[in-house]
């Protein structure tokens, strides 16, 4: 296990290097002179020269790349061209907002998806099964930005049940220490604010979680169907265990590995989808941070934002890989 963990960590190195090469290249692959593109047509030659100086664009490529990597390793993600702030500090509240949203969406996707999948498998070919699987099929095909817009229209604008924009009531801002509003509000003892923040999470969280939920439901169903046919399941049933015990303790435990794989892969969908969801719901997360940077041609922010999201994705998949052997001791590396 330890050897595997170490090997898996070592395998990360080329991936991380490759990722940094790609994000590094973003600015260099801009057609034409990057500084000119960033500053626009009317920029003076002095302004262009000074920006080139600031971004170090005059150095040879490998020196630039060396500086870039050295910076990242020291936690320096560069300076935003628009706000002139350090990206590594600026990014933290956005990052926390995205993590909060993603975790909420993932919890929603897993709870609903796994249970729908289990019931579908247990009552195969029932009305529930058909309905759930049709919903899952439609869910996979749904553009999440459209689902988000529809939810906003129905639940926020027409029914007025839930807030459609932002993370909290703008007139009653949350005092932040960790940038996770659900935690900060508890630290501050403001449970009314906690409830508001929670309500703000619901619509974007469900919009973001729908595709993973659908995929998890389908995976759980097919994985459970396979397990339910096994002899040991018949034994458990014959023993007279309660249905609940049979399904959840003995059945799902054995069906969990493929489900876990899907969950790991879906975090990528979630992190990518966060960008769309955050745009629609004005959620101040890292996706929106990058999106706004694209509009402002703030390339250092684009580079670092993308690098941070991709690194998160890679680390999550690492954790999932390592979890396999913990959950299923039969898997040996």
């Amino acid at each position: 296990m330890l050897a595997y963990t170490i090997r898996r960590l070592l395998m990360l190195i080329p991936v991380l290097i490759g990722m940094s090469l790609i994000t590094f290249s973003i600015i260099h692959l801009i057609p034409g002179n990057p500084a000119q593109v960033i500053l626009g047509e009317q920029a003076s030659p002095q302004a262009i020269a000074s920006l080139e100086e600031q971004l170090g664009l005059n150095e040879p490529y490998f020196v630039q790349y060396g500086n870039y990597v050295a910076g990242i390793l020291q936690g320096d993600l560069g300076t935003s061209l628009r706000t002139r702030g350090e990206i590594s500090t600026e990014i933290l509240p956005y990052l926390a907002a995205t993590i909060e949203l993603t975790i909420f969406a993932l919890i929603f996707a897993v709870i609903v998806g796994v249970n729908a999948g289990i019931i579908s498998a247990w009552r195969q070919n029932s009305m529930f099964d058909y309905t759930a699987m049709i919903i899952a099929l439609v869910g996979v095909s749904m553009p999440i930005f459209w689902l988000g817009l529809m939810q906003q229209w129905v639940f926020a604008q027409e029914l007025g049940w839930l807030p459609a924009f932002g993370r909290a009531n703008p007139r009653d801002p949350v005092e932040t220490t960790t940038y996770f509003y659900l935690i900060d509000t508890i630290i501050n003892g403001r449970f009314d604010q906690w409830w508001t923040s929670f309500k703000h999470l619901i619509l974007p969280g469900i919009a973001l979680g729908t595709i993973p939920m659908a995929i998890i439901a389908r995976m759980t169903r097919s994985s459970m169907l396979e397990v339910l046919r096994q002899d040991y399941m018949r034994t458990v049933e014959a023993k007279g265990s309660k249905t609940f015990t049979v399904i959840y303790r003995h059945g799902f435990k054995n069906a969990v590995i493929p489900v876990l794989t899907v969950v790991g892969l879906q975090t990528g969908t979630l992190l990518g989808g966060a960008l769309l969801t955050e745009t629609i719901f004005s959620w101040p997360g890292i996706g929106r941070y990058v999106y706004e940077a694209i509009g402002n041609r703030d390339y250092p922010v684009i580079q670092s934002g993308i690098l941070v999201i991709a690194t998160m994705f890679v680390l999550i998949n690492l954790v999932v890989d390592l979890l396999y052997s913990y959950i299923d001791p039969r898997i040996k590396y």
């Binding site: 080329p14 991936v15 490759g18 990722m19 973003i26 990518g272 960008l275 694209i294």
Partner: peptide, 24 residues
């Protein structure tokens, strides 16, 4: 395979956005 790994390390839509950010 390593190049594939690296490309798959990005959430796909994000990589698309990065490419469009470069090309316009």
């Amino acid at each position: 395979s390593r190049v594939f790994d690296i490309m798959l390390a990005f959430p796909s839509i994000l990589l698309a956005i990065a490419i469009v950010a470069m090309l316009g």
